[in-house]
Amino acid sequence: MIVSNMEIIPGKRITEHLGLVQGSTVRTKHVGRDIMASVKNIFGGELQGYTELLSESREEAVDRMKKQAEAIGANAVVNVRFSTSSVTQGAAELFAYGTAVIME
């Protein structure tokens, strides 16, 4: 399964478009991490707990998108986009979507 955010796949020909596939996840960290983050808010710097949280959940969203694409018989997802939104304090929704295609 090739995942790409370009409209084409270099060297491959796309034979069929199967439509939009998407994956999303809403996640939060335990309260200890939130307390650590608010302490970090005084000192400044990277909030590693949140970075980790977001990249993990983004992977999860991409995985779900891939599963959906597999289920409809695609072998690649092109033109993938990400979007993030905060649902409540400390929780984030990560959303990935793209076009499922069959390439030769």
Partner: peptide
């Protein structure tokens, strides 16, 4: 990706 915070 990175999450970064500003200081007080």
């Amino acid at each position: 990706s990175v999450v970064i915070s500003v200081d007080y």
